[in-house]
């Protein structure tokens, strides 16, 4: 986190006309670079989002419209705030006590930072997959059915069976469906009762995706989902992300620019200091970026 060059007292009144110094280049971020025009509806819209961790200003006045049923990639160097931004979208930052979040994030037109937001419902709709695969030390079946079971959508307990409600069939259907969507079913269908930790890293990550799909979300947030995996497992995850985009809105943070170029429909570039510098069509961002700094970053001169 180095935002030593930008002191808050130097901050201009109009945030859209801010000047940032990185190395020797000096550039004004144009508001138009951050406007992304697309057909269809936006699933998530963010405006004026600021995040502070204590004295550290991690995200500065972010505004962004995320279209539904597409893949949005968030790229940028380490410490630029892209993961923080992602964790704002399902309020996972609430779990960090020092985090202070101002601004508005709307999901289907409703501000998720407003009053009376039901976090359980929000996180059921906006699922998340983490950087390192984190299956629970339970069986594959229990992992996938964990969300629905804990939300009471599936009841298979002793007393439920005693009172005549047995959802085991429904559970197995959800498990199969989720594992199929996560392209893992064929590999694990014969060992659903084995411990999830016996799977390989790539399989574990797909299991985590299946676990997230089992609660039937709209949006899937992925925080560098392939960075801990080998190239073959990475390719499988990338294929999977593209498939998921047909049905879900996927937002994926990645370090890997080739990956972003391959899988995403639109790309947002965050640069050091917690600023969204440019947001647009992936092709446009990678072939003809407006900002010199973004071009430097993409061509590897900086970052």
């Amino acid at each position: 986190m180095s935002n030593t060059t930008l002191n808050e007292t130097e901050r201009p009144d109009d945030p859209d006309e801010r000047t940032t110094t990185v190395g020797e280049s000096e550039e004004t971020i144009q508001p138009s670079w951050r406007q992304y025009h697309f057909d269809g509806d936006s699933k998530i819209s963010v405006s004026g989002l600021d995040v502070h961790y204590g004295d550290d200003h991690a995200l500065k006045d972010i505004g962004m419209e995320i279209p539904e049923e597409s893949v949005t990639a968030l790229i940028g160097p380490s410490g630029c705030g892209k993961s923080t931004f992602l964790r704002c979208l399902n309020r996972m930052n609430d779990r960090i006590r020092a985090a202070e979040i101002d601004g508005e994030v709307s999901y289907d037109g409703e501000n998720i930072y407003g009053d009376g937001v039901n976090l359980v419902e929000l996180r059921k709709r906006v699922g998340m997959v983490f950087q390192a695969p984190n299956p629970f030390p339970k069986s594959i079946r229990e992992n996938v059915s964990y969300g629905p079971r804990k939300h009471g959508d599936i009841r298979t307990g002793f007393f439920d069976r005693l009172t005549g409600r047995d959802d085991r069939e429904q559970r197995d259907r959800i498990v199969e469906e989720s594992l199929r969507k996560a392209a893992l079913w064929d590999e694990v269908k014969d060992r659903l009762d084995e411990n999830a930790l016996s799977l390989s890293g790539g399989q574990q990550q797909r299991l985590c995706i299946a676990r997230c799909l089992a609660v039937d979300p709209d949006v899937i947030l992925m925080d560098e989902p392939a960075s801990a995996l080998d190239p073959i497992a990475t390719a499988k995850i990338e294929d999977l992300i593209e498939q998921l985009a047909e049905e879900y809105t996927v937002v994926v943070v990645t370090h890997n620019m080739q990956q972003a170029a391959r899988i995403s429909d639109q790309t947002a570039v965050f640069l050091t200091g917690g600023e969204l510098v440019e947001y647009g069509d992936t092709d446009q961002i990678f072939e003809n970026p407006n900002s010199d700094r973004v071009e430097d970053y993409i061509t590897g001169k900086f970052g």
Binding site: M92, R95, L119, R123, F130, P135, F136, G147, R211
Partner: peptide, 20 residues
């Protein structure tokens, strides 16, 4: 990571403690 994974699925803290 277990707590994060459970929270991201919308499971309450007490349920997470109890079952994970």
């Amino acid at each position: 990571e277990y707590r994060d994974a459970s929270a991201a699925l919308g499971v309450s803290q007490w349920e997470t403690i109890k079952s994970v």
